[in-house]
Design a protein around this nucleic acid. Structure first.
Length: 767
DNA sequence: TCATAGCTACTTTTT
DNA sequence: GTAGCTATGA
């Protein structure tokens, strides 16, 4: 048997070996899904001699795509793997659309608008249409348009659809169809596509241009789709079109983990896959390699409450594990504190590293209390999600300059930078320019270029001319300068970098650093040897750079190995795993969220979200909820989440939650809060997070009476020490960075352990 | 034209 | 609680 097939279980093996025809792989949480996908690609290439050019693999995140690519390269080598089309739906489609843009009337250097850009265009459109943005909230309008595009409904179809018309009329927003039309025109005029356009236009390309359809159908003989449960109708139709010729479509997903319906994903795609094609091979991966038996049992129980699902039973051969812990606190701040305390305690007791912990929550706003508590305890953490690097104002401003140089029709970019840094082009002038542009059906840029003709007066005219001149100068440099050199000049000459540099507040400093960081990333881009991705367009220029980054969102993700506690929403945690997981805010109206408790579908999605959270944990899972919580600046009383009661009592340790946690919180319990108890006796053995069933048990050690932790700066190899938990031992090795030293200690009773001196409390007995 | 004080509005968000 | 926008005064 081939080396790469070794270690697959029977179902995994079947999924990998299936060659032609449609196949659906239902992959439970932690069942080795990525391994199956990558091994399948390797097998197709190595065994069936399928050319890399003929394989298309689509994922939802850059990270998933990168991981897949890396694994394939690892086995087959870079030269073989580099020609694979592995990427996110958006990046692969964007790449194809660049090549075919002219068919659709777009320039091939079209700009990609992110959500903020799109909303800003909507705002501008609303203003021009004299519509009130209280009734037509840009957010709502954007979502409505997004939904339409994800369902392949264009502006014309939208206007003609009586159902949609009725819905909009009922919600008192009859003008959505008009706004949609104006928005689409504006984007087109700006030479820009939003995220949804990348899918929608891809569909239109295949639908309306038979030769394009045929080209890509021939090219992609084998198609693999990851996270199929999260696909929306647009993605579904594109896959259907692309796969129609060979029908070698392999979809992988887990209906139980479908949590993106609010972004247009429809679980029906996976539930009905076997009706879309004849003779669908169905493989279920039900063995979990991630979690303890306890966690898997609870996950199964919870998800079984959902009606709509593909029947399956997850099982594991891992250890039994311990019960799931439930902690109740009085306030959200206590919740943060108790989690931070527990992390600290567990690090000491069980030798976990910061990176072994994840704190998950339903909404981003919940991160604050954890943050404060962790900071106070000096535990390193990182919040994932929230504002990504590329969404920060200063970064967007700088990028807007670069965008404008590449595509002067990009009105969003123009508006961002026309008076930033301040150069005396005020609101009045800008409004005037926009007005002229609309009246004369030209771009705003055009108005500026021909400012004199449009009758701007001398003072304004001068500043406008100077601005136009500077941008034109940058444009003329484009063919001869690489992205970094040009960006450097732009940053310097525009005064933008200086402006940030002069702001000496701490926020200003952070902003300056962010722009420097951006410059670094541009430099890195110019210095990295060209790979096949960029072979298409002018290599190291500004245009190529912008294309590359417009679909990147999370630079933060790159450092997954740093030793920090990770904080993120459950959504962001999908696909990840952690030894210890804390799940916070298990309260009615928060989780399940108030907006999702009115329909069965929504509630089931919340439950799937709960399922996703549970199945992130490898060894320990701790649920917390708080009696009161500040939300929107107001103190709220909360009932415990209904999901808590869906966990079988046999698998839930409620001893931290008070006796009546099943009922509504009573008035008189506060004196004996779990929090208080936890602090009075932090190390009662039965109350501790023991990992006995997962790792070999440590022999209990009772610290000597005069135990006082020594200064760890004094610790050297050869010292004899006492550890609170592990007893006596000898230091055999010192390593790690100066700020994070690690000692290897041979304990008399408990063997060799690595101890992080920043956290451990050790007493030096003999030096 | 710019700086600042108040008012408002908020789920999740791979791209 | 806080970001982000609007109205106001300088």
């Amino acid at each position: 048997m081939e080396q790469y097939l070794i270690g697959l279980n029977e179902s995994q093996h079947r999924a990998v070996l299936h060659k032609n025809g449609p196949i659906m792989i239902i992959a439970g949480a932690g069942s080795g899904k990525t391994k199956v996908l990558t091994t399948r690609i390797i097998h197709l290439m190595a065994e069936h001699k399928v050319d890399a050019f003929n394989i298309l693999a689509l994922t939802f995140t850059n990270k998933a795509a990168a991981e897949m690519k890396a694994r394939v390269e690892n086995i087959l080598g870079n030269t073989e793997a580099r020609n694979l089309y592995i990427g996110t739906f958006h990046s692969v489609f964007a790449r194809i659309l660049r090549g075919e843009a002219t068919k659709l009337g777009y320039p091939s250097n079209f700009t990609i608008y992110d959500t903020d850009d799109a909303k800003s265009v909507i705002k501008a459109v609303l203003k021009e249409m004299n519509l009130d943005d209280k009734t037509y909230k840009p957010n709502t309008v954007y979502n409505r348009i997004s939904e339409a595009k994800n369902n392949l409904v264009g502006p014309a179809e939208y206007a003609a659809d009586s159902m949609l018309k009725q819905e909009d009329a009922r919600s008192n927003r009859p003008a959505i169809a008009e706004i949609y039309d104006a928005y689409a025109r504006r984007c087109f005029k700006n030479g820009a596509m939003d995220f949804d356009d990348l899918l929608f236009k891809m569909y239109l390309l295949l639908k309306n241009f038979p030769e394009a359809l045929s080209k890509y159908q021939h090219k992609f003989k084998y198609i693999l789709i990851d996270e199929y449960q999260d696909t929306n109708p647009a993605q579904y139709e594109v896959i259907k079109l692309l796969g129609a010729m060979h029908e070698n479509v392999c979809v992988v997903g887990d209906d139980a983990q479908s949590i993106y319906s609010f972004r247009g994903a429809t679980i029906q795609n996976i539930l009905q896959f076997n009706k879309d094609y004849d003779d669908v091979e169905i493989v279920k991966l039900e063995q979990n390699y991630r979690s303890t038996k306890n966690i898997i049992h609870v996950a199964n129980e919870v998800i079984s409450k959902n009606k709509e699902q593909i029947p399956k039973q997850l099982f594991t051969e891992n250890a039994e594990g311990e019960k799931i812990k439930l902690i109740r606190t009085m306030t959200d701040n206590d919740e943060g504190k108790i989690v931070a305390d527990t992390i600290q305690e567990q690090k000491l007791r069980d030798h976990f590293f910061n990176r072994d912990f994840a704190i998950l929550y339903r909404t981003n706003a919940q991160s604050r209390s954890y943050e404060e508590a962790l900071r106070r305890m000096g535990i390193a953490y990182r919040i994932y999600g929230g504002l990504s690097f590329y969404q920060r104002k200063e970064v967007k401003d700088f990028l807007a300059y670069l965008r404008l140089v590449v595509n002067p029709n990009d009105e969003e970019a123009l508006k961002r930078v026309i008076n930033y840094p301040v150069r005396g082009i005020g609101k009045t002038t800008i409004d005037k320019a926009i007005l002229f542009a609309n009246d004369n059906k030209v771009s705003m840029w055009e108005v500026l270029v021909r400012a004199k003709e449009f009758g701007f007066r001398s003072g304004t005219l001068e500043t406008l001319d100077a601005f136009v001149y500077s941008i034109k100068m940058y444009q003329s440099e484009m063919p001869i300068k690489n992205a970094y050199d040009l960006a450097f000049i732009i940053g310097k000459n525009s005064g933008l970098v200086k402006d940030l540099f002069n702001d000496k507040t701490s926020e200003g400093l952070a902003r300056y650093e962010n722009v420097q960081e951006l410059m670094n990333s541009i430099k890195e881009f110019t210095e990295t040897p060209t790979n096949e991705e960029s072979g298409e367009v002018g290599d190291k220029g500004l245009g190529t750079y912008l294309q590359q980054i417009s679909l990147l969102t999370d630079v933060d993700d790159q450092n997954t190995n740093e030793d920090v506690v990770k904080l993120m929403t459950i959504h962001a945690a999908k696909g990840l795993e952690f030894p210890v997981v804390f799940l916070g805010g298990l309260e009615e109206n928060l989780f399940p969220n108030a907006m999702s408790i009115h329909s069965r579908e929504d509630l089931e999605e919340e439950r799937r979200l709960f399922y996703v959270a549970i199945t992130r944990a490898k060894q320990h899972l701790c649920l917390t909820y708080s009696n009161t919580r500040y939300r929107f600046g107001q103190l709220q009383q909360n009932d415990p989440s209904r999901f808590i009661d869906e966990i079988p009592d046999t698998h839930l340790d409620r001893s931290y939650a008070g006796n009546n946690s099943k009922n509504r919180p009573s008035e008189g319990w506060a004196g004996g809060s779990a929090f208080d108890r936890m602090h009075r006796k932090p190390s009662v053995p039965s109350a501790s997070f023991s990992i006995s069933s997962v790792r070999p048990a440590n022999k209990e050690h009772i610290p000597t009476d005069n135990f006082i932790a020594s200064d760890m700066k004094e610790l050297r190899e050869g010292h004899r020490v006492e550890h609170m938990k592990f007893g006596f031992g000898n230091v055999v090795k010192m390593e790690g960075a100066a700020h994070n030293p690690i000692a290897t200690i041979e304990f008399d009773q408990n063997g060799r352990k690595k101890i992080m001196l920043n956290y451990a409390r050790l007493m030096i007995i003999e030096s």
